[in-house]
Design a protein around this nucleic acid. Structure first.
Length: 899
RNA sequence: GGACGCGUAGCUCAGCGGGAGAGCACACCCUUCACACGGGUGGGGUCGUAGGUUCAAUCCCUACCGCGUCCACCA
C-alpha cells in the first residue's frame, strides 16, 4: 500500500541509486534486450568543472533527460554522454582567487607547474560537485562514459585537430591586433568581449603643422576618447575629398609630447561630417586605425605592455604608468602646451572582458588563428540544407548571420590552464624567422627539426594554451573516442539532438558544426534544441550580486526534483523563463495529486487482471477514459518528438488532473461503491490501466515520483518487470477512441457542469436535493442521462434524474448539450436572482444567434466559406435560438407569477 | 547602424485564418467517505496602434509606437 504522502527528499537518492545499479543509463542495456535497438545519442553541454548547478543547468538537463528517458522507453539504445569542461579562464580565475584568499603567493610566484598542479588538486577534491548535483536532478547520464576536456583522450584529439588544421593551412600564426585582457594578460576572442555604452568625454587636441602655415592655418585638430594613445600616433588621416584639408595632405605635423613628426595622409576612413574631419591614427591601439596603418604602411607603435602600462618609445616620465594615469598627464601637458581645444560629453562604446570585467585593449601580438571563414562554408550549407535543424527554427538565422560574417578565430590564450599548444619554436631558419614545428608530440617536433636542420636543435614549446572552446568544439566526437575508430563513434555519430542555450550558439554550437563537419565529414548533430534563459519572477537575469538567484538544489530539497523538472518542462517554450517559487509549488501539488489518485485506486482495489485487453472495455465511462488516455499519449509522444516539452507536460497535467481525477474518478465512484460486481471489476481494471499509462507517460518529465508509484503499484500491471526507467512507452492505438462514449460522457459532464453552475449562481443551499428533470432532449440523450442517474445524483446533489416534459411551476430551467433540464428549486432560492440569471443567459444566446445570423445573411460567406463552416454556423444559430426560446418562456412564466 | 524576437485576463504565458484559452492571483461556496499541496462556481480581455489582403483577421502583409536580446570599428 502506498504511504500517505511521497517524501521526495528521502526517496529520490534511493531511487537514483537503484537506477544506476540497474544499468539502465547505459546504451548497452537496451542492446541486451534487442541487439538491433536503434541508437539515440545526446552529448551534454559540459558544465565548467568549477561550476555548481544553477537554474540554466536545471532547465537544460531536464530537457535532455526527458529526451533520454523517452527514447529509452521507446526501446532505443540511448547514450546521454556526460562530462565537464576545464573552462580555461574561469577555472584559472577561481584557483587564483582561492590562492589569494588563503594568503598564498600568486600564480606567477608559484610558477606554472606548481600552479597547474594546484588546479588539478582542486579539481580532484571539488571538481565532481556538479556531476553529483546533476544526479540530484535525476539526470540519466551514462556516467561510465563521463569525459573531461583535459582527459588524455580528448587532449590527443585536440593535438590532432590542431596539427591537421595547420597542415591544411586552416590554422596559422599571425601578428595582428587582438583583444587583450590586461588583467588575465591574455588574448581573448571577439566573442569574449562585451561592449558597453558609457558616458565619456571626447577631447580635441591641436597638432602643430610643421613648416609654413597653409592659408594662415598652422595646426590640425583631432578628436579622441583615448588621449594617452596619442603617444603612439603614426599619422593624421583626412578624407581625400575633404576640401578643407586637401593642401595638408603630404605635410607633417609635430606630435606633441612625443615630439615626433608624423604625416598627414589621405584615407577613406575619416568621415568629414564627424568632428574636425581629421583623425589621429594609432595603428597599434585601435582596430580601425590598424586597418588604415596597414593600408599606408605606417609603422605600428606599441606603447603599452601586457598589463596595459605605458611602455615603448615614449618619454621616460610615462614609463610604467597605468594608462588611466597617463591619460590625465597627457591632458595636463597638452593643456600646458596650449594645444587643448575642448572636450565634449558623449556616449562611448567601451570593450570589457566578459570574465575579468576590465577594459580590453587592442594589442599587437603573435597569436594562432583558425581560418573560420573556410570552415564555416560547409557548416552553413549543413543548416541551409537541413542536415542540422534548429528548433525553434528562427535561431538558424542567428547562426547564419554570424557564420556568414565570421572573422578569423584567435585560439591561443596566454594562460596556464588548458591544452598546451602543440607547436615548438626552433632556431632562426634561412628566411630569418624562428622556425616553428607543429606536431602532435615533442618527439615528432624534434624529428621534424632534425630533418630541417640536419642536426639536433634546441626546441621550446609554445607557452600558450588553447581557447577552451577549441576543445569543446570537438566534444561531439572526441567524447566518443575520436581519433580512434571506436564502436561508440561508429554507433553514435552523428549524435541526434543537442540541447543548449542561445547564449552559446556562436561559442559552441557553431564551432562544433565547423569542426564536426570538417573532421567527421558529417554534421555533429541532426537537431539543435535551443532553450530559453531562466530569469527571476520579475524577468531579471539571476545573478549573485542582485541576490535574486533561486538555487535549484534548494528547490530540490524543499519541493523535490520532479516539481522543479515539471516546472522547467512546462515553461520551456518561452524565450525567457520567469521562475517563481509559487509556480514550482503548484507543480509539486500536481505530483501530490497523482499520488493521491493512485492511493485512491489502491483503496478501491483497482488492478489489471491477467490477460486484460483495454479493447474489451464496455462501459461508456471506461471507453471514454480509454479515449482520453489515447489522446493524451498521442499528444505527449508528438510533443516530445517535436521538442515541445511545454505541450507534453501540459497534456499530462490536463489528463491526470482534469480528466482522470476531476471527472473519471468522480464518475467512477458510484460504480466502485455500487453493487454491480462486473461493472466494478471492469472499472477497477480500467482505472489501474489508465494510471499505469499515466505513470509511464509522465516518467520522462517526473521520473522520481513515477518510479516510486511504479514500485508500489504492481497490481496496475501484472506483466511489469524491472524498474519504470526500463519499461516500455505505452502503445495506444487510435481505434481505442470511441466517439459514441465521448458523446455520452460529454453529455453527462456538461449536464453536471451546467447544473452546478445553476445551483452556484442561484446560491441554492448545498443541502437542497431537488430532482433533475429532463424536459426535452433526444431519446439517446434521455437514455444516457437516466443510465447515469447514480453519478448525477451524487455529483450534482440531486435526489433523482427523470424525464418530465411538463415540469412543475417553480422549476428552474437550464440547457446543456442541446438538452433542456429543470430543477424545482423555487422554494430555496431568490427568484429575483433567477430572473436576472435568465435575462443574462437569454441575452448571451441571443447575441450569439444574431451575430451568427448576420454572418449567414452574407451571400459571400455562404458562397465562399467551406460548407462545413457554413453548416457549423447554421447549427450554432439554431441551437442558440432554441436555447434562448426555452429560457425566455421560463422567464415569461416567472414574470407572470409576479417576480 | 544591422539582425532577431516580443507586446493576448491583475501576473506568467499558450493559441497564430472560422466568435479568445490555461495556470497562478482574486471573489463566493464546500469540515462530500484519495487529496485543503483539496473540491465546486464565478468575475475579468475592443488579443499594442493605424492601414491593407480575405466571405472571414488575435492569427497573414505594411507602417508606426513600446519593450528586449544579439551583432557591429565610427574618432
Amino acid at each position: 500500500m502506498l504511504p500517505k504522502t511521497f517524501d521526495p527528499k528521502a526517496a529520490e537518492p534511493l531511487i537514483y541509486a537503484r537506477w544506476e545499479q540497474s544499468g539502465a543509463f547505459s546504451p548497452e542495456h537496451a542492446l541486451r534486450r534487442n541487439p538491433d535497438a536503434e541508437p539515440f545519442c545526446i552529448v551534454i553541454p559540459p558544465p565548467n568543472v568549477t561550476g555548481s548547478l544553477h537554474m540554466g543547468h536545471a532547465l537544460n538537463n531536464t530537457l535532455q533527460d526527458i529526451l533520454a528517458r523517452f527514447h529509452r522507453m521507446r526501446g532505443k539504445s540511448v547514450l546521454w554522454l556526460p562530462g565537464t569542461d576545464h573552462a580555461g579562464i574561469a577555472t584559472q580565475m577561481v584557483v587564483e582567487r582561492q590562492l589569494a584568499a588563503q594568503g598564498n603567493v600568486g600564480r606567477r610566484e608559484l610558477g606554472r607547474d606548481a600552479f597547474v598542479q594546484r588546479i588539478w588538486e582542486w579539481k580532484a577534491e571539488s571538481g565532481g560537485a556538479i556531476t553529483q548535483q546533476l544526479r540530484r536532478l535525476g539526470a540519466s547520464c551514462d556516467w561510465s562514459r563521463e569525459r573531461f576536456t583535459l582527459d588524455e583522450g580528448l587532449s590527443a584529439a585536440v593535438r590532432k585537430v590542431f596539427v591537421s588544421l595547420h597542415r591544411e593551412g586552416l590554422l596559422y600564426r599571425d601578428k595582428r591586433l587582438v583583444n587583450w585582457d590586461p588583467q588575465f594578460q591574455t588574448a581573448i576572442s571577439d566573442l569574449e568581449v562585451e561592449t558597453r555604452e558609457e558616458k565619456g568625454l571626447m577631447w580635441s587636441f591641436a597638432y602643430p603643422l610643421e613648416g609654413e602655415p597653409i592659408d594662415g592655418v598652422s595646426e590640425i585638430v583631432i578628436a579622441t576618447t583615448r588621449p594617452e594613445t596619442m603617444l603612439g600616433d603614426g599619422a593624421v588621416a583626412v578624407h581625400p575629398d575633404d576640401e578643407r584639408y586637401r593642401q595638408f595632405i603630404g605635410r607633417m605635423v609635430r606630435l606633441p609630447i612625443a615630439d615626433r613628426l608624423i604625416p598627414i595622409i589621405a584615407d577613406e576612413y575619416p568621415d568629414p561630417e564627424k568632428g574636425s574631419g581629421a583623425v589621429k591614427i594609432t595603428g597599434a591601439h585601435d582596430f580601425n586605425d590598424y586597418q588604415v596603418a596597414r593600408r599606408h604602411d605606417l609603422s605600428l607603435i606599441s606603447i603599452m605592455d601586457e598589463q596595459a602600462r605605458m611602455s615603448g618609445p615614449i618619454p621616460d616620465r610615462y614609463r610604467g604608468m597605468d594608462r588611466m594615469v597617463a591619460r590625465k598627464l597627457v591632458l595636463e601637458e597638452i593643456e600646458a602646451l596650449g594645444l587643448y581645444r575642448g572636450a565634449e560629453e558623449r556616449m562611448i562604446a567601451r570593450p570589457y572582458g566578459d570574465r575579468s570585467g576590465v577594459v580590453i585593449e587592442p594589442f599587437l601580438t603573435d597569436q594562432w588563428y583558425v581560418d573560420a571563414k573556410t570552415l564555416a562554408q560547409p557548416a552553413i550549407a549543413d543548416v541551409e540544407e537541413g542536415r542540422t535543424v534548429f528548433e525553434p527554427a528562427h535561431w538558424a538565422k542567428t547562426y547564419f548571420e554570424w557564420m556568414r560574417n565570421i572573422e578569423p578565430w584567435c585560439v591561443s590564450r596566454q594562460l596556464w590552464w588548458g591544452h598546451r599548444i602543440p607547436a615548438w619554436f626552433g632556431p632562426v631558419d634561412e628566411t630569418g624567422k624562428p622556425s616553428i614545428f607543429v606536431e602532435e608530440s615533442e618527439a615528432a617536433a624534434r624529428a621534424a627539426a632534425q630533418e630541417q636542420f640536419g642536426r639536433d636543435v634546441e626546441l621550446r614549446q609554445d607557452e600558450d594554451v588553447l581557447d577552451t572552446w577549441f576543445s569543446s568544439g570537438l566534444w561531439a566526437f572526441s567524447t566518443l573516442g575520436w581519433p580512434n575508430e571506436t564502436e561508440d563513434l561508429k554507433r553514435f555519430y552523428p549524435t541526434d539532438t543537442l540541447v543548449t542555450g542561445f547564449d552559446i550558439i556562436f561559442f559552441w554550437v557553431a564551432r562544433m558544426m565547423m569542426l564536426g563537419r570538417h573532421f567527421m565529414g558529417s554534421v555533429p548533430f541532426r537537431r539543435v534544441i535551443i532553450n530559453g534563459l531562466v530569469r527571476d519572477e520579475k524577468g531579471q537575469k539571476m545573478s549573485k550580486s542582485k541576490g535574486n538567484v533561486i538555487d535549484p538544489l534548494e528547490i530540490v530539497d524543499a519541493l523535490g526534483a520532479d516539481a522543479l523538472r515539471f516546472t522547467m518542462a512546462i515553461t520551456s517554450g518561452a524565450r525567457d523563463i520567469k521562475l517563481s517559487k509559487t509556480r514550482i509549488e503548484g507543480y509539486r501539488n500536481f505530483g501530490t495529486k497523482l499520488w493521491n489518485a493512485a492511493r485512491f485506486c489502491q483503496m478501491n482495489e483497482c488492478a489489471v487482471p491477467p490477460g486484460f485487453d483495454p479493447a474489451t472495455l464496455s462501459s461508456p465511462l471506461n471507453r471514454w477514459l480509454r479515449g482520453e488516455v489515447v489522446r493524451c499519449g498521442a499528444l505527449v509522444t508528438d510533443a516530445i518528438e517535436a521538442g515541445r516539452f511545454d505541450e507534453a507536460s501540459e497534456a499530462l497535467y490536463r489528463f491526470i488532473w482534469n480528466s482522470f481525477c476531476d471527472w473519471y474518478l468522480e464518475l467512477a465512484k458510484p460504480v466502485l461503491n455500487g453493487p454491480d460486481e462486473a461493472a466494478k471489476a471492469e472499472t477497477r481494471a480500467a482505472a489501474a490501466w489508465a494510471l499505469d499509462c499515466a505513470i509511464r507517460l509522465l516518467h520522462p518529465v517526473s521520473p522520481f515520483i513515477t518510479e516510486a508509484l511504479w514500485e508500489e503499484t504492481a497490481e496496475f500491471d501484472p506483466n511489469r518487470s524491472g524498474m519504470l526507467i526500463e519499461a516500455q512507452w505505452p502503445t495506444l492505438p487510435a481505434e481505442w477512441v470511441d466517439p459514441q462514449a465521448d458523446a455520452e460522457i460529454g453529455l453527462v459532464i456538461a449536464t453536471i457542469g451546467e447544473g452546478r453552475s445553476l445551483r452556484a449562481e442561484l446560491r441554492a443551499p448545498p443541502s437542497a436535493k431537488p430532482p433533475l428533470l429532463i424536459v426535452e432532449g433526444s431519446g439517446d440523450a434521455k437514455r444516457v442521462l437516466i443510465a447515469a442517474e447514480a453519478v448525477i445524483r451524487q455529483m450534482l446533489r440531486v435526489s433523482a434524474v427523470r424525464v418530465e416534459p411538463q415540469p412543475p411551476a417553480g422549476s428552474l430551467p437550464f440547457v446543456a448539450s442541446g438538452v433542456t433540464f429543470a430543477m424545482p428549486l423555487a422554494d430555496v432560492i431568490d427568484l429575483k436572482v433567477e430572473r436576472a440569471r435568465l435575462i443574462k443567459e437569454i441575452d448571451a444566446f441571443t447575441v450569439d444567434a444574431d451575430r451568427t445570423a448576420k454572418k449567414l445573411a452574407n451571400a459571400d460567406f455562404v458562397a465562399r466559406a467551406p460548407a462545413a463552416v457554413v453548416q457549423e454556423n447554421r447549427d450554432r444559430m439554431e441551437e442558440a435560438r432554441a436555447s434562448a426560446a426555452k429560457l425566455a418562456s421560463a422567464l415569461q412564466k416567472l414574470e407572470q407569477a409576479g417576480v
